[in-house]
Simulated scan of single mutants.
Amino acid sequence: MLKHILISVISNDKPGVVEAIAETVSDNGGNWLESSLSQLAGKFAGVIRVSVSPEQQEQLQSALSQLIEHGIWIKTEHIDADSAPKSDTTNAYIHALGPDRSGIVRELSRALAQHKINMAYLETALTSMPYSGDPLFDATGQLELPEGVDIPQLHDILDEIANNLALDLSLSETPFE
C-alpha cells in the first residue's frame, strides 16, 4: 500500500524550484499527486501531496531535506491516503471585494468558524480601485457547509460583515469566475 506525504515548501522565487522538487520526487520513487503553489512577495511557497512505496519513503524524505542546500526549505508530514474529511458537507463559494483595511479576513473567518463552516480554499489579492488608485481587497474562497446550515442566516451574517467593512460580499452555490 502506498504512503502519502504532504510536502510544504518555501524558497526564494527563482526558476527551477518546481523542477528541483519534481525531479527529487520522481528520482526517489514518488508520484506527484496534487499541489497548490504560488509566488508571494518574491518568495515561492506551496503544498504538494505525493505518494511513495513504504520501502522508498525514508529515501524520498531524506532527498527532499537535502534541497535546503539549494535554498529550498522543505517540511514533510505523513498523511493517510484517505484523510479527506468524510462528512456531509455542501460546497459554497464566497467572493469579497472592497476597500482594503485591517481585519477583513479575521472577521470573515471568525463568522464562518462560529457556524462550523470550514474554509477549504481562500485566495486574496490587493489591487487598486479604478480612478482613485486606493487599495482594493479582493478575496475568493470555497466553503464547506455542514449539514443543516441555515443559508438565510448565513447570508444575514455575511451582510452584516459586508456592511461593517464596506465590502461587496457574495455567496454562491457555484464557483466565481
Rank of each mutant, 00 (worst) to 15 (best):
A45S: 15
G46F: 02
G46D: 08
V47W: 01
V47S: 02
I48Y: 04
I48S: 00
I48E: 06
I48Q: 02
R49P: 02
R49K: 11
R49N: 10
V50F: 13
V50A: 13
V50W: 11
S51T: 15
S51F: 11
S51L: 12
S51G: 13
V52L: 00
V52P: 00
V52R: 02
V52Y: 01
S53R: 10
S53G: 12
S53K: 09
S53W: 07
S53Q: 12
S53M: 12
S53H: 04
P54A: 12
E55L: 05
E55P: 02
E55D: 14
E55V: 03
Q56S: 11
Q56C: 12
Q56F: 07
Q57L: 06
E58I: 04
E58L: 12
E58S: 11
E58G: 10
Q59P: 01
Q59T: 09
Q59N: 08
Q59W: 09
Q59K: 12
L60A: 03
L60D: 00
L60S: 01
L60M: 05
L60E: 00
L60I: 05
Q61M: 07
Q61K: 09
Q61S: 07
Q61A: 03
Q61P: 00
S62V: 08
S62W: 10
S62Q: 13
S62L: 07
S62R: 14
S62I: 06
A63M: 03
A63Y: 00
A63T: 07
A63L: 03
A63G: 01
A63K: 09
L64S: 00
L64T: 01
S65E: 03
S65W: 04
Q66K: 08
Q66D: 14
Q66G: 02
L67I: 06
L67K: 08
I68A: 12
I68V: 12
E69R: 15
E69I: 05
E69A: 13
E69C: 08
H70Q: 14
H70R: 15
H70Y: 09
H70V: 05
G71L: 05
I72P: 00
I72A: 01
W73G: 05
W73C: 10
W73V: 11
I74G: 02
I74W: 01
K75T: 04
K75E: 09
K75H: 04
T76K: 00
E77L: 11
E77K: 15
E77N: 14
H78Y: 04
I79R: 03
I79Y: 01
D80E: 13
A81S: 11
D82G: 05
D82E: 08
D82A: 07
S83F: 05
S83G: 06
A84S: 13
A84L: 15
A84K: 15
A84P: 04
A84M: 14
A84D: 10
A84H: 13
P85L: 13
P85V: 09
P85E: 11
P85G: 08
K86H: 10
K86C: 09
K86I: 04
S87T: 15
S87P: 01
